[in-house]
């Protein structure tokens, strides 16, 4: 029989586990956006070398599993540098680097979709490139790419469950521990699943609010 009451003593632990999941998602999204923006600009730049390097980066991070990248960073960093990287650092770093590759592609598409006239309009008034990229092109590029960007942060939220593999006490790790202690696999994992679902729906909602906001100029 199903018995959710056995989980009750562990709910305070769940709260801190969810908090960790959120923290992971937040920091890796920030890192992914910043990295992705820089990468997108580099791939569109005139420097052949830089643009080639950026393309190699994107291809490597999109072409290998996130879990492999995570383990590589977590376990190989101490071996190579002598620095004992914490699980949190390793997680944020690998997720950030990985999502930067995806986000840069979404943003690149968004930038290319901005009408060429917007560039010329700004140039013809003497506005320097670094300014109009930030003030005119980027806002429109983000608007174009918003659905993919929201999607990317949803992916990050779900993929954050991978950090449980390197021992971070996140939501999935919580469920795993509870089922070991109580032998209640279904109850433990279904609660974890529900938590992720609620979080993803919340992100979705935020995304649609954002979408409405950026559509005011339509």
């Amino acid at each position: 029989m199903l018995d959710f009451s056995v989980l009750e003593p562990y709910f305070p632990l769940l709260a801190s586990a969810v908090w960790i999941t959120l923290k992971f998602t937040f920091f890796s999204t920030i890192m992914g956006f910043l990295g992705g923006f820089v990468l997108a600009l580099i791939t569109l730049s005139k420097s052949k070398l830089l643009s080639f390097l950026a393309k190699v980066y994107i291809s490597v991070f999109r072409g290998t599993p996130l879990l492999v990248q995570l383990m590589l960073i977590y376990f190989a960093t101490p071996q190579l540098t002598g620095y004992t990287i914490s699980a949190l650092e390793a997680g944020v770093l690998s997720f950030g680097l990985n999502s930067a590759a995806y986000i840069s592609e979404a943003l690149r598409g968004g930038i290319l979709a901005v009408d060429k006239g917007q560039w010329e309009g700004a140039m013809s008034l003497g506005v320097p490139k670094h300014r109009f990229l930030l003030d005119i092109i980027l806002p429109q590029a983000i608007k174009n790419a918003l659905p993919s960007l929201v999607n990317e942060s949803i992916m990050l939220l779900k993929d954050s469950s991978l950090v449980s593999v390197i021992g971070v006490a996140d939501t999935l790790r919580w469920a795993d521990l509870i089922q070991a202690k109580t032998f209640r696999a279904f109850e433990a994992f279904i609660v974890a699943a529900a938590v992720y679902y609620v979080l993803v729906m919340a992100l979705n909602f935020l995304g649609s609010l954002l979408e409405k906001k950026v559509r005011v100029s339509d």
Binding site: G117, Q118, E120, M123, S124, G126, P139, Q140
Partner: peptide, 19 residues
């Protein structure tokens, strides 16, 4: 930029900043 600010252009397709 110093040249362009003195020779501003009006385009066929307006090119007003959409945002």
């Amino acid at each position: 930029e110093d040249i362009r600010k003195n020779a501003c252009m009006v385009f066929q397709h307006f090119n007003l900043f959409a945002n």
